[in-house]
Simulated scan of single mutants.
Amino acid sequence: MTRTQTTEAPLDSTTIIERGRRVLALEAEALHLSEQALGEPFADAVRLLASCTGRIIVAGVGKSGLVGRKIAATFTSTGTPATFLHPVESVHGDLGIVGPDDVAILISKSGESDELLGLIEALARLGVKRIAMTAAAGSRLGRLCDVTLDLLVKEEACPHDLAPTTSTTVTLALGDALAVALLQAKG
C-alpha cells in the first residue's frame, strides 16, 4: 500500500467535519479541566516568576520545545525577559546564558525526557529555581522542580496517540496564563 492509499472509504464532508469537531471538543475539554483544576501551584509559579531578577529560561524537547519557544516569546512580549534554551544545546555551551537569578520553566509531557533531566541537574547546581509543566506530576521532572504544574492531559486528539495535540494546546494555554498573570502581578 502506498502513502496515498487508504483502507478506508473516501471521506465525505460529514465524516471530516465530525473528526475535526472531535479534536476541538477534546482540546476544549482539556482546557476546561485545566481551568477548573488551576490552584495553588499556579499561584506559586507566578510568585516565583514575579520574584525573578534575572530572566525566564524556557526549555523542552520536540513539540514541547516548539511550544516552549512560543511561551518564551509571550513572556518577552509582555515585558518579562525570557529566552528558550534547548536542553541538548545547553550541554554544548549554551548553558552560559543561565545565571542564578533566573527561573526555568521545563516542559515535558512525560516528565521523563533524558535531555531535559540532564539540564535540571545543571540548573540545580547553578541555584536556578525550576517550574515543571508536565502531564505526569509524579515524574522525575515533577519531583526535581520547585513547582509542578500538572497539564492534566489524559488523551491526545491524535487517534493513535502519536502526535502531541491536546497536550500542546494545554501547555500553550497554561504558558499564556502564566505570562498574563505575571504581567498583571508586576503592574
Rank of each mutant, 00 (worst) to 15 (best):
T15H: 05
T15A: 05
T15V: 03
I16S: 07
I17G: 06
E18K: 10
E18W: 12
E18R: 13
R19V: 07
R19Q: 06
R21D: 10
R22P: 05
R22D: 06
A25W: 02
L26F: 12
L26P: 08
L26C: 10
L26D: 12
E27R: 02
A28R: 01
A28L: 02
A28N: 03
A30K: 01
A30I: 05
A30C: 01
H32S: 11
H32N: 15
L33M: 11
L33W: 04
L33S: 06
S34C: 11
S34P: 09
Q36W: 12
Q36I: 14
Q36D: 15
L38M: 13
L38E: 14
L38H: 11
G39K: 11
E40M: 08
E40F: 13
E40W: 10
E40Q: 12
P41K: 00
P41F: 02
P41I: 00
F42I: 05
A43E: 11
A45P: 01
A45Q: 04
A45M: 07
V46H: 09
V46L: 05
L48N: 06
S51M: 14
C52Q: 12
T53W: 10
G54C: 04
R55P: 12
I56H: 06
I57W: 05
I57Y: 05
A59S: 14
G60E: 04
G60R: 09
V61C: 07
V61L: 14
G62N: 05
K63Y: 14
S64E: 06
G65F: 07
L66F: 06
V67I: 12
V67P: 08
R69S: 06
R69W: 02
K70D: 11
I71K: 00
I71C: 06
I71D: 08
A72C: 06
A72E: 10
A72L: 10
A73T: 01
A73Q: 04
S77C: 07
T78L: 00
G79H: 09
T83G: 15
T83E: 14
T83P: 08
H86G: 13
P87D: 00
V88P: 12
V88H: 12
V88S: 06
E89C: 02
E89W: 00
V91M: 14
V91R: 09
H92V: 05
H92I: 02
G93E: 00
G93D: 01
D94A: 08
D94Y: 07
D94P: 11
L95P: 00
L95C: 09
G96P: 01
I97R: 11
I97P: 13
V98Y: 01
G99H: 08
P100C: 14
D101L: 13
D101R: 15
D101I: 15
V103S: 01
A104H: 11
A104Q: 13
I107L: 07
S108P: 07
S108D: 03
K109Y: 14
K109A: 15
K109C: 10
G111Y: 02
G111K: 00
G111E: 00
E112S: 07
E112F: 04
S113P: 00
